[in-house]
């Protein structure tokens, strides 16, 4: 099939960017979207031009590296699919596509379609864990966990940290990402001791990173390649509300002694 691509080209973080048009005369429907871009890049290199920078690694939909907007939707039109798993049979001959990076203040563009998602790591660092040192454990079966809770925790933990939720949100909110971790750990007995602290700190960090707020539009849930649900956001709100009322401030400043 034949496709016309409009791709956002931006040399670096402090450079202006613009859409550049590329014609793809010969796209195989069995190619993945990234393989289609590989073909374009090989062609650009042969012509002495710079290839399009885009992030990717595992190319099997789990590492969360890849992701950009295709026609205004993160990861493109197929639900539950990362762009590396999106195949060209989802498009039709003669289609024109607009490809641009995820946009949010907290995701600055590094080059072309590549953005910096370090803000996500910092949200996790603020409390997205269970504070157990290596070796501090009891037998794995010592604490039974209700199957349903384990499944719900797994549903939330399936988040790959790609940033599609932020990209799709009209407010560039990271609520779904943050809530997924709060819900995952909050649903398990191991996560109870730090539940309040986790909610307070992670939400505070989310704001610190300049993400927007949640208006419950549900776009994130619909576009999440892993189907993480917005009921996790309600859970986060609940945990946060409770923590805001009962949480005792730390005596030592956050960040250790």
């Amino acid at each position: 099939m034949k496709l016309t691509l409009n791709i956002w080209r931006q040399k670096g973080p402090n450079h202006p960017g613009r859409m550049v048009k590329y014609e793809m005369p010969n796209v195989d429907e069995h190619m993945s979207f990234l393989e289609m871009l590989d073909v374009l890049n090989e062609d650009l290199i042969h012509k002495g031009e710079e290839p399009v920078t885009f992030e990717h690694d595992c190319r099997e939909g789990i590492c969360g590296c890849c992701g950009f907007m295709i026609n205004g939707l993160p990861h493109g039109p197929q639900r539950g699919t990362t762009v590396c798993q999106l195949h060209m049979r989802q498009f039709h001959d003669g289609e024109e596509l607009w490809i641009e990076p995820f946009r949010a203040k907290a995701f600055p563009v590094l080059k072309d379609l590549m953005v910096d998602r370090g803000s996500f790591d910092r949200i996790i660092a603020a409390g997205g864990y269970v504070s157990v040192n290596t070796g501090c454990f009891v037998d794995g079966n010592a604490i039974p966990i209700e199957k349903q809770n384990a499944e719900m925790a797994m549903d939330a933990a399936a988040c790959i940290g790609c940033g599609a939720c932020v990209a799709s949100c009209p407010n560039a909110s990271a609520s779904l990402f943050t809530a997924a971790k709060i819900a995952h750990l909050g649903l398990l007995p191991q996560g109870q001791a730090e539940r309040d602290r986790r909610a307070v700190r992670m939400v505070a960090q989310m704001m610190e990173e300049s993400f927007g707020y949640c208006t419950n539009t549900g776009e994130c849930e619909a576009l999440c390649p892993k189907g993480v649900k917005i009921e996790n956001i309600a859970r986060m709100n609940r945990d946060y509300l409770k923590a805001a009322i009962t949480y005792r401030e730390e005596s030592a400043p956050a960040g250790g002694s």
Binding site: Y129, T134, A153, M154, A157, L185, Q190, G191
Partner: peptide, 18 residues
Amino acid sequence: DQCVAQGVPFAREYGGVL
């Protein structure tokens, strides 16, 4: 044991065991 303590959501049976 270590991973369970960290909150890794391993598959479980109805009785709550791994």
